[in-house]
Amino acid sequence: MRRQRSLILLGIAFVLMFAALVWQQREQEQQAAAPTPFPTPHLDRVFPELEVLAIQAVQLGVPGMERTLTLTRAEDGTWNAIGMDGELDAEAATAIARTLALLPYSQRFDIDDDTDLRQFGFRPAGDFFIQFITVFGDEHIVAVGEPSFEGPTYYALVDDRPQVYLLERGPVDFLVNHYMDPPVTRPDQ
């Protein structure tokens, strides 16, 4: 009987402690939670499964501008520039495809319906877009926003994923440069 009494006392202490913890948890949840950033020393690929040879067509462009750089791959594997006269630099085209396959990001974070995307440069569209189709029929689009806060990265949205990506500037600038100055040698050059 004495053992049972001890058990009851322990049970009461347990319930009280449990209640105190639940109360403490609720109190802390009510306080404004400060976001805790963590370092991300490595880079990841936006499309980790994507292979260069799986890219069938690529389109680079600026929202609101008619001009785009559209590259398609023929059955024999050679690249063609759609709507452009001249000879396409095959190495440059492959480099573009390789850049898409490797497209690295340093960080990504979740967003929700209430997130104001304008702060990342999407008003509503970004400054640049990258679109490609794979041989399996998958379509992907990367909308690039503004350069990130004091960092060597761009904000980007990928497909309909509920995250903002921080893309490394180098690869994005490489694609932008090719859009601005297409790797096509005109007949008169």
Partner: peptide, 20 residues
């Protein structure tokens, strides 16, 4: 105290005219 990651919340950083 409140800590803000200016990379994730650039709008707030801009409102404060904050640097990293």
């Amino acid at each position: 105290r409140e800590y803000i990651d200016p990379v994730r919340q650039p709008a707030i950083a801009t409102a404060f005219r904050a640097q990293d």
